[in-house]
Design a protein around this nucleic acid. Sequence first.
RNA 1: GCUGGGGUACUCAAGCGGUCAACGAGGGCAGACUGUAAAUCUGCUGCCUUACGGCUACAUAGGUUCGAGUCCUAUCCCCAGCA
Length: 362
Amino acid sequence: MQKNFRRLDGMTLPYPLFFPDATRGEVRQLSFEDVKKVGLPGILVNTFHLLRLVGTEKTELAGGIRSHLGWDKAMISDSGGFQIMSIAKKGGDNSTVTDKGVTFTIDGVKHHFSPEDSIKYQMAMRTDLMVVLDDFTPPDATYEEALMTVNRTTLWAKRCKATYLAECKRLNIPRDRRPYLIGVVQGAYFDDLRIQSIRELTEIGFDGYGYGGWVMRDGKFDIATAKLMADNLPKDSVLYGLGIGKPDDIVKCVELGYQIFDCVLPTRDARHGRLYVYKAKEIEKIDVYQDSFYEYYNPRQAQHLEENAPVSTACDCELCMTVTRAELAKRWRERDERVLRLATIHNLRFYAILMEKLGSGN
RNA sequence: GCUGGGGUACUCAAGCGGUCAACGAGGGCAGACUGUAAAUCUGCUGCCUUACGGCUACAUAGGUUCGAGUCCUAUCCCCAGCA
């Protein structure tokens, strides 16, 4: 198993890594300075949304999305495959998905997007890791529907790989300076489809493989499929849990061999008033291998208006160092927007500490 | 003192004879959120009950009516204008 993540500039970062989602080029509520202070290795940006909002020319001219945005740490990109699910398949509009690609309709505007587009733009962005465009099903999909997306994902993966190689050649990128290209395993909850997807993708050959699709099953993280994949994928490849996940699920995945994660949960939960708190008095005493090693803290609850302690004593983030629970609760109910930033910082710091704890065992 | 307008659940606020346990908003409580069209969304919020249903309620007391938060009378408060 690989021990380190290699950035385009040659710098290495020890696994496991968690990348907060900066879908549109920014982690919601945070400045890049905030993200850096939190101690995470980089951010994940979304190819489809950035292509829509920034465009290819600007990015190429600026020498990559990193310098366009002014971000100097690691950056990985998602292909836009998830948006096929979250936007195109949500129904009710004119979006369509065919083998050729996908047509999104957002606010009445049509956007065409193909596997080739995704790779070309990811190359133009010069992210450290990129993901093939994939297709997947909603949780209630039938076997036949899941099979169709497995086949399409394989078809697209081939074209993504070809585009990747062509772009590397066209741009004269030396072998050791190429971004990681991740294939995404599909197959929903059907083990044989997952195996088929793994077989087809590994035949094409990728630097790593992602646990794709709907990772939740009946309201719980589908650890069985995560294990199936870890057991059947090449041991020397990178394992990426796309959209994973809750802190305890990340712990389980790291134990299975997963190295890279990204998820909206810490940032979205922060905005929605769900803060993560380690059940330990101080950072040194945190044991992430203990059952239920953390709990939720909701600053919106009126009961916290009297509490003069910090949100967590096992945390060194700006929120916990400067604001009491009472102050946070008060400011939350006053709709002071700055608390969303502090809450986001807190949850991301929680994830950063989690990854540090998980990495120290390497 | 006169004239006019009001008193509705934790708060604000609809309601103008039945479809009202009472619109809506806030607050409160609970839940959801997993490659971000989410600083969002969903419930519950008089009492008993899992529910059906029952009970008690729209300042207070009477009254009219088959039926009253809604109409009438008196009383108590509040507000504006005039004295």
